[in-house]
């Protein structure tokens, strides 16, 4: 089973986590919403898979390249 981390493309804060462990995500599904400069930036699954870990929590500051969610196909 290949695992893959979905990484943050921006520096910002985790505003809302919209997925949960065990959930199935298709490519392009929104996993969480980050906030940067008062904009809501959706984080999408880069491939289909099951959410095995959520690596951040709401309110946390994340930096560019930081892993946010781990998917397993």
């Amino acid at each position: 089973m290949a695992e893959l981390n979905v990484e943050s493309e921006i520096t910002g804060a985790v505003w809302k986590i919209t997925t949960e462990i065990g959930a199935r995500a298709e490519k392009g599904d929104v996993l969480m919403i980050l906030e940067s400069m008062k904009m809501e930036i959706p984080v999408e699954a880069t491939q289909a898979g099951t959410v095995v870990r959520i690596l951040v929590s709401e309110g946390e500051t994340v930096s560019e390249g930081q892993p946010l969610v781990r998917l397993s196909d």
Binding site: E9, I10, S36, M37, K38, I41
Partner: peptide, 8 residues
């Protein structure tokens, strides 16, 4: 690009 720094 509003995805990055809201486009500023």
């Amino acid at each position: 690009d509003p995805y990055h720094s809201a486009g500023v």
